[in-house]
Design a protein around this nucleic acid. Structure first.
Lengths: 139, 139
DNA sequence: TTCAATGCAAATTTTTTGCAAAGTC
DNA sequence: GACTTTGCAAAAAATTTGCATTGAA
């Protein structure tokens, strides 16, 4: 299930405020980037692209903002492979598929999201389903 | 579903050979460690513990062996959090639960393993279900 | 003896930290 | 003006690489 409708430009400020995040320029830029690029970029992808249009931004700030947005549940971290943390502004549960050939991470919209039965006593905060294999283009 | 019975000491050599891995001493030691410690250790956990009884082993070798065992599908990598790759000798599909408080990773044996429906054209190699939250002891 | 595996040190990559400068309310 | 955020450079942590040495068949 996709987060629909995606936040239109301008709405991201309100969304940040609703989650307790002051909408400073760099924060809005990183968040807007994630909304516009549902490609599960790494921190460095984001930094590299943003710097083209926002000369002032630093890697540290990208990391600061991403950590802040994760803490406030505005974006989610995806741990799907070694040495690369990816970020996703779509916080609705969905599957991720990483192609081992081209390296892209696809959203798979299993409907409904698979049900997992958790033993008594465990408190669930987040469920991630990460699939690896070959995408249609590479298979 | 647990991999039962676990390989008893001695059998790990045969298992390695069956997967095309020459059973050299360091390789057997790392694999035996993973069989004996189903706690999803990191490479450094393994190195630290093995070095106590095997003075000659190096960090590089632990990494080499883990990569080799993963390539030959003898062990699986678990990417469940930032900056830490964990390893599991149980290659049967099962859920992982990471406690955000104590940091431990538990096996959850959902029976059956949740079914995910994959769109036409994708070729699945591996499915990982990673849950974060609080374990019974920390909740 | 020939090829593969190991160990060390250095390099690489990703992320965090300390702290001074700049920005925000 | 008080407090927060940013940016730089350095530190930390995880993993890989180059290469000389050792080990195995």
């Amino acid at each position: 299930m996709v987060q629909m409708p995606f936040l239109t430009p301008g709405d991201e400020r309100r969304h940040l405020v609703e989650h307790g995040v002051r909408p400073l320029n760099h924060r809005v830029a990183v968040y807007r980037y994630l909304l516009d690029h549902p490609t599960h970029p790494t921190a460095d992808d984001i930094y590299g692209d943003l710097k083209k249009h926002m000369a002032s931004i630093s890697r540290t700030t990208v990391y600061n903002v991403l950590n802040l947005l994760c803490d406030h549940d505005v974006v989610k971290r995806i741990a799907i492979e070694k040495n690369e943390m990816r970020y996703d502004a779509n916080t609705v549960n969905h599957l991720h598929f990483k192609c081992t050939d081209c390296g892209r991470v696809f959203d798979l919209h299993d409907d409904p999201f698979p049900v997992v039965s958790i033993p008594e006593g465990f408190v669930v905060q987040d469920v991630q389903v990460n699939i690896t294999g070959l995408c249609p283009g590479c298979a």
